[in-house]
Design a protein around this nucleic acid. Structure first.
Lengths: 338, 338
DNA sequence: TTGAAAGCGCTAACAA
DNA sequence: TTGTTAGCGCTTTCAA
């Protein structure tokens, strides 16, 4: 069943004008008499005319929509970032089409291709944890599709990027644990190839270093599924608990990892769980309710979404190919919970 | 800057064929020689041709996209429902465009109008807590735009609806609190005019009734902003704490209300908070970490999204106007935490 | 100041 | 089996 609709033609016919005159009146064109313009506008208003955005897109060869690729919208960081994205996009007249990769590389490719096949004017991407080869994105970018990365960025693609100060955030969180007296601090993180992984690992190592605490590779748990699969965390926690030197503190590099590893500890050994101190990246709004408490490294998700979108729209609306790109780094915030 | 692109014309020119022949070959049309078809397909593959969905939309007068209007994607229930929506839509070849009302009526209207102005084939809506007058949706629906409601539905609009068994879920949660020995049970809920509000209130009252516990209006807190503004909850909790007969248990009718009122209790009186028993609707994935624990009424969010999308696509693809509508009710699950 | 006509990419009825 | 043509809704030269 079809959704009935009013076109410019209907107005033209009703008013005994040509479609081009109506079009000009509607766009507020200059080359038209005030009288005609008034009549057209009034009538259009009366019958509640809405231009067909699809026809406009075809004509202008752009869709006034931007595509977003994140791993999971149920993740607090991303849902907050999306709010930031929408706040800017909406104001600038753009639709936002959100897709999720669920940390699957295959799904990510499919989403990007779908979006790119000319239905969006630009792309906002945070890579999935499975994504190792980003050449397909590079292809698109080379062809001229505006792309801005945020959070999980691709090193090898030269474009605007928006990230949190992952090094500093990780350093501060680790230092906080150290100052509490901890020396046996494990680290839960994403797969190695992600940008955020090395940056956060770096902050962790540097803090250990500063306080002369040896770095122990066995304390670092790379989670291939980024915490999407609880079993992975349960296994990692099991391994830690089997070490002769059990860690007594954890620094987790991501939302799902922070909460997921706390759950894993609770599952394995509830009593031990209450003794362990966890600090981790999370943008959860209910972190106050957790027990044992989690000290949170909070990313400015909303602002990151905003900045990324501003950069993208600048790219889209630029008349000339852009060759100068910038990387914006925003500070995290350490929220201490006892 | 424009994103360069390959059209059917390019293929036609390169192969010395007409565009219609190429089109037929691409669509796997029957009236075409296998040889020509092969050549076209091979060439299209080689140059990585992608049809322009916008041109297709204009031609077919549909966009293969569906619009979703929810109050907030950062809400667990909705993000899970969206996953369900996407799983079905994606499989059926539809894009999903997600918009948020942030519980604002004005924003909801703007989103719906934007989506409806012909860029989507159908709409999936869960009403914002501010929405009292839905006549603008009714208008759209009367004009033939396929619409399916889920979760928060409009009574006065006749179309498919997908809801949780709110009555039963509320009854069970309240009964659970009663069986624990509670008689002073407060109820945090959404604004009165929402469908879910009356259904859940009804379950609460019926349970009280069954056990001869008098219903006390002062124990019912309607939260106009559905928990989006913490201050509202703080005030409501303050009022409860000022009663001579403080409630010792809470039944909260919604995700943000469950966690938000626990936070409010912790803010006001941490010690009292640890004594109070909370049961409430929530689809949080970290409910295991809360302290004091929250017994959860979990809605089958993913399935609800799936069912709603199936119904919507059926509506969209129906050749004749549909006049028989159904309301699907799915059961909730009570997850008890001590 | 207005109208006629072409064209954005694609499909489909009609002709050849 | 293939090509020609018109048209989806709109904007924009070009002519009048």
């Amino acid at each position: 069943m079809k959704f009935e609709t009013i076109t410019i033609k209907d107005i033209a016919k009703a008013l005994g004008l040509s479609t081009s005159t109506v079009s000009r009146a509607l766009r507020g064109g200059y080359e038209i008499s005030d009288e005609t313009k008034r009549i057209v506008l009034e009538y259009a208003e009366k019958i509640n005319y809405r231009p067909n955005p699809i026809a406009l897109s075809l004509k202008e060869r752009r869709s006034y929509s931007i595509g977003v690729v994140v791993c999971e919208i149920a993740n607090n960081f991303f849902s907050q970032a999306i709010n930031g994205i929408e706040s800017i996009a909406y104001g600038a007249g753009y639709h936002v089409i959100i897709t999720q990769s669920n940390e699957s590389y295959e799904r990510e490719i499919s989403n990007v291709q779908h979006l790119a096949s000319r239905s969006v004017d630009g792309l906002l991407i945070s890579l999935s944890s499975e994504s190792a080869d980003n050449s397909y994105i590079k292809n698109l970018h080379d062809k001229g599709l505006p792309i801005v990365f945020f959070d999980r960025v691709a090193k090898e693609i030269e474009t605007h990027k928006v990230i949190a100060n992952n090094f500093k955030g990780s350093f501060e969180a680790t230092e906080y644990l150290i100052k509490l007296g901890h020396t046996k601090i494990a680290h839960f993180t994403n797969p190695e190839h992600l940008s955020i992984t090395s940056e956060r690992l770096d902050g962790y190592r540097t803090a250990l270093n500063k306080y002369n605490i040896p770095f122990d590779e066995r304390y670092v748990k790379y989670c291939q599924h980024g915490g999407m699969i609880q079993e992975e965390l349960d296994n990692a926690v099991g391994e830690l608990l089997n070490l002769e030197e059990r860690p007594l503190a954890i620094f987790a590099a991501q939302d799902k990892l922070s909460t997921g590893c706390l759950m894993a500890f609770k599952n394995h050994d509830p009593e031990f769980a209450s003794k362990i101190k966890i600090a981790g990246f999370t943008n959860s709004g209910v972190v106050d309710l957790f027990s044992p408490p989690i000290t949170a490294v909070r990313q400015p998700a909303f602002e990151m979404g905003q900045v990324a979108t501003q950069l993208l729209i600048k790219l889209i609306e630029s008349k000339y190919p852009v060759t100068e790109f910038e990387t914006r780094m925003l500070d995290t915030e350490l929220i201490i919970k006892h």
